[in-house]
């Protein structure tokens, strides 16, 4: 070990290993992972979100799972919870849409309206 900078280098690399265990007060992304969610393909959606966040070096976002919210027909469901308490519910997720949410909603702070439960419901109703 020659310098503090060298130590910092190791620390940064090691942080990826343990970040999940640090207290996080930032945004939480919750993926519905009950039987309905898993059957509809929630697992690849969740893994995509985790990978996308890592790719962009975003460390203050927690990705976690939850049970069935009740609207099983709209699974996989992903919710983005802001520290201020606001919540956006995305439905009918796919890995591609999940990528989009990370780049638009998480990085740029623009809600992907098209995927939200309100919009999807509206479209379904107009079809009917």
């Amino acid at each position: 070990m020659k310098s503090l900078a060298e130590l910092e280098e190791i620390r940064k690399k090691a942080l990826d290993k343990i970040n999940i265990r640090k207290e996080n007060n930032g945004v939480r992304i919750v993926v519905g992972m009950a039987t309905c969610g898993i059957a509809a393909g929630a697992r690849p959606v969740m893994n995509t979100i985790v990978e996308e966040l890592k790719k962009r070096n975003i460390n203050d976002v927690t990705v976690t799972m939850t049970g069935c919210i009740g609207v099983c027909r709209l699974e996989p469901i992903v919710e983005v919870l802001d520290p201020d308490g606001s919540r956006v519910t995305y439905v009918n997720m796919t890995p591609e849409k999940a990528q989009h949410i990370v780049s638009e909603h998480i990085v740029n702070g623009r809600i992907c309206l098209d995927y939200t439960i309100g919009e999807v419901e509206k479209k379904e109703k107009s079809k009917a």
Binding site: M1, S3, L4, L7, I10, R11, K13, A14, L15, K17, I18
Partner: peptide, 15 residues
């Protein structure tokens, strides 16, 4: 040791 360093280990020694 990497996990210790990740939680600011050996930073005090360096300082």
């Amino acid at each position: 040791i990497d996990e210790y360093i990740a939680f600011d280990g050996y930073k005090a020694l360096g300082k």
